[in-house]
C-alpha cells in the first residue's frame, strides 16, 4: 500500500521528471548524430566530460555561467575531435566510440584526483539558478523552475521542428539516409554530418551539466550508464523525438520505481528493475514490440 501511495505522489512525479531530463537530452543528442548517419556510442563519455567541465570551471571561476559555457565548449571540442576521427578519417564509428569513452572517463578520473586530490568527487558547487516564483510551488516547483528541464520539454518541439520542418533538418536526414542521393543534388553531406555530431556534443553537454548541477558536484561514476540508456531510448523511440520522449519517460519511471523500492523495501529485487530498460531494448530490437529501423546509412562512413 505504502508503495502505491508513494508512486502516486507528486514527489514521485517530480522524481520521474528529474530522472527523465538527462535521458532525454542524451537521447536527442544521439538522435541528431544518427539522423546524420554518425553513430556515437561515446554519449556516455560526452556526458562525463561536460559534467566534470561544469563542476570544474564553476569551481575555478566561481561563476556558474562561465562553468556552463566552458562545459559546452569542452564538449564541442571533443565533438570536433570525434568528427575528425569518424568523418574525416572514416574510422569505424563503434571502435572510435569505445576509444573516446575510455579516454573521456579516464580523463575525468584523473582530473578530479589531480585538481581536487579526491578520488571520488569535486567540492560542492552551487545549483544552476531556478526561475523565481515558480520554484515556490510546493512539490513540483523545484523541477518546473529548472531551466534545463524546461529546455528539455521545449526540445520535444524543437527536435521535431528542426528535423522535419526545416531545410537544415531535411538535408541532415538525407546524410543519414542516402548520402549519394543527397550529394547528387549538390548537398555537402560531410558538412551536415559534422553539424549532427556538434549538435550531439551540445545536447549531451546539457545532460552532463544538469547531472552535475543537480548533484552539486561531479563524482566518479555519476553518469552511471545514462549515456547507454539514452542510446537505448533513441532506438526504442525509433529515432523519432516524440517516441523517444515516451521511451525516456518509461526508463525514468523504472528508475524512480527502483529508488522507491530500495527505500521502502519490497519483494521485487531492485536489480531486476535495474535491468529492465536494457531487457526491453533487446526485446524491441528482436522485434517483439514493433519493428525498429535506423536511418538507412547509419554508421556507414561517407
Amino acid at each position: 500500500m505504502n508503495i502505491i501511495v508513494s508512486i502516486l505522489s507528486l514527489t514521485f512525479f517530480a522524481q520521474v521528471l528529474r530522472l527523465f531530463t538527462p535521458y532525454f537530452l542524451g537521447a536527442n543528442a544521439a538522435n541528431f548524430s544518427e539522423r546524420a548517419g554518425v553513430i556515437n556510442i561515446a554519449i556516455e563519455g560526452f556526458m562525463i566530460t561536460s559534467a566534470l567541465g561544469y563542476a570544474l570551471f564553476t569551481y575555478l571561476t566561481n561563476n556558474i555561467f562561465l562553468g556552463f559555457v566552458c562545459a559546452i565548449l569542452v564538449n564541442l571540442l571533443f565533438s570536433l575531435l570525434y568528427a575528425l576521427f569518424v568523418i574525416k578519417l572514416k574510422i569505424n564509428q563503434i571502435v572510435a566510440g569505445v576509444g573516446f569513452n575510455l579516454l573521456m572517463a579516464g580523463l575525468a578520473k584523473f582530473l578530479i584526483v589531480f585538481i581536487f586530490q579526491s578520488s571520488s568527487n569535486t567540492p560542492r558547487i552551487p545549483d544552476l539558478p531556478n526561475i523565481p516564483y515558480i520554484q515556490d510551488i510546493p512539490y513540483v516547483g523545484e523541477v518546473l523552475s529548472d531551466y534545463i528541464i524546461l529546455f528539455s520539454f521545449a526540445l520535444i518541439f524543437i527536435s521535431n521542428f528542426v528535423l522535419f520542418k526545416t531545410k537544415f533538418g531535411l538535408r541532415l536526414r538525407s546524410a543519414g539516409e542516402n548520402p549519394e542521393a543527397g550529394e547528387s543534388l549538390g548537398i555537402k553531406i560531410r558538412l551536415y554530418k559534422l553539424y549532427g555530431v556538434l549538435i550531439c556534443g551540445f545536447l549531451s553537454a546539457l545532460g552532463g551539466i544538469w547531472l552535475a548541477s543537480n548533484q552539486n558536484s561531479f563524482s566518479d561514476g555519476m553518469v552511471a550508464g545514462r549515456g547507454y540508456i539514452a542510446l537505448a531510448a533513441m532506438i526504442i523511440g525509433k529515432w523519432k523525438p516524440v517516441n523517444i520522449l515516451f521511451a525516456c519517460i518509461m526508463f525514468a519511471f523504472f528508475e524512480a520505481l527502483e529508488i522507491t523500492f530500495q527505500i521502502s523495501g519490497t519483494f521485487i529485487p531492485s536489480q531486476i528493475i535495474q535491468m529492465l530498460p536494457y531487457l526491453i531494448t533487446i526485446l524491441v530490437l528482436i522485434g517483439f514490440i514493433g519493428k525498429t529501423k535506423p536511418p538507412a546509412s547509419d554508421g556507414i562512413p561517407y
Partner: peptide, 15 residues
C-alpha cells in the same frame, strides 16, 4: 589515474 588517460590516447593513436 593518468594511466587511464594514456590508455585512451593509445587507442585513439592506433586508430
Amino acid at each position: 589515474e593518468i594511466m587511464f588517460v594514456i590508455q585512451g590516447i593509445v587507442i585513439l593513436s592506433i586508430l
